[in-house]
Simulated assay, not measured.
Amino acid sequence: MAELQTLFDYTGHLPECPTWSEEEQALWWADILQGELHRYHPASGEYSVLCFSEEVGCFALREKGGFIVAMRNAIWLTDRRGLLVQKVCDNPSNPQLARFNDGGTDSQGRFYAGTFWGPGDYNGALLVRIDNDLTPKVIQCDIHGANGLAFSPDKRWMYTSDTPNGVIYRTPLNEQGEPGKREVFRQFGPGEGLPDGAAVDEEGCYWSALFDGWRIARFSPQGDQLAEYRLPVRCPTMVCFGGHEMKTLFITTTRENMDAAEVAEYPLSGAIFTLPVAVAGMKKSLFIER
């Protein structure tokens, strides 16, 4: 059995969107509620933080250097220091009620960012895509909390999850990567946990962080659970693959909305864990501007 370890001596508030930089051999992630991007270089132990004026829901590394960052009010391009360079678009949701949440890139280097509908009174969130020419396009609605974005190795399927509604979807993609009608991939019941952030491996299996479920699970392309990995904390938020061979699973977790008693009992809530795995993960594309 592979051994679960903490990445280093760190706990955050709401760490999300772990992203492995192949060029840097370093892990980046956001702490949404702190408005921060973090970087850790495992080989040297070097650690640094970039600070922003708003929540940072998700981000991607840019081919031209720097980041594309989905903040509460808008999506921005930044330089390597995190300084805002160009506003791409406003938040297409009501930013007072819906902040950006999960996101990432597809094989064509386009950026996707979903929102989380704060009031919870109906499915008011959405998923927006930023194309390579920086044009925004809303591609899915009827979501409570957008999460779980990942793409199959054959580029035929986009996976997403709606965490509060306990469902993972898959959406067929045509040759241009345009989405068809989404369908239910897996529905979760009481006690299973809620599907949060995710990643796909080279065999096309979907790895989901099960929020409130104490575990990570690996699902076949048909939606069958193949394996699970228990955690010492209740709420993992997302996973990504990285390392030299893309066979290290990085797992972000949170301590959001936990009282002092739970944090004291489970002090690693908010830590980042690493797990060696037998199958390599798919590499994340850089955001490409043309």
Rank of each mutant, 00 (worst) to 15 (best):
residue 89 C to D: 08
residue 258 M to N: 08
residue 207 W to K: 02
residue 140 Q to N: 07
residue 236 P to V: 10
residue 23 E to A: 15
residue 66 G to R: 00
residue 60 A to R: 00
residue 192 E to G: 06
residue 115 T to S: 14
residue 8 F to R: 14
residue 154 D to G: 10
residue 16 E to N: 10
residue 23 E to D: 15
residue 138 V to E: 07
residue 76 W to Y: 14
residue 19 T to E: 10
residue 114 G to E: 08
residue 137 K to E: 12
residue 145 G to P: 01
residue 90 D to T: 11
residue 153 P to M: 03
residue 143 I to N: 02
residue 261 A to F: 03
residue 14 L to E: 04
residue 172 P to Y: 10
residue 46 E to R: 13
residue 92 P to H: 09
residue 117 W to Y: 15
residue 102 D to S: 08
residue 212 D to I: 00
residue 77 L to R: 04
residue 139 I to R: 00
residue 70 A to D: 05
residue 225 Q to M: 15
residue 278 A to S: 14
residue 183 E to M: 10
residue 147 N to S: 10
residue 137 K to G: 00
residue 275 L to R: 07
residue 268 L to Q: 14
residue 149 L to Q: 03
residue 82 G to F: 09
residue 191 G to P: 00
residue 114 G to Q: 09
residue 159 Y to S: 03
residue 14 L to Y: 10
residue 182 R to Q: 10
residue 45 G to E: 10
residue 58 C to Q: 03
residue 232 P to N: 11
residue 51 C to I: 04
residue 265 E to I: 02
residue 87 K to Y: 06
residue 74 A to I: 09
residue 187 Q to W: 05
residue 33 L to C: 07
residue 183 E to Q: 14
residue 283 K to C: 07
residue 129 R to G: 02
residue 201 D to W: 09
residue 264 A to P: 07
residue 173 L to V: 10
residue 13 H to C: 07
residue 262 E to N: 05
residue 16 E to D: 13
residue 161 S to A: 15
residue 271 A to H: 02
residue 237 T to R: 07
residue 18 P to L: 13
residue 252 T to S: 13
residue 238 M to Y: 03
residue 58 C to K: 02
residue 224 D to E: 15
residue 128 V to G: 00
residue 47 Y to A: 13
residue 241 F to R: 06
residue 191 G to C: 07
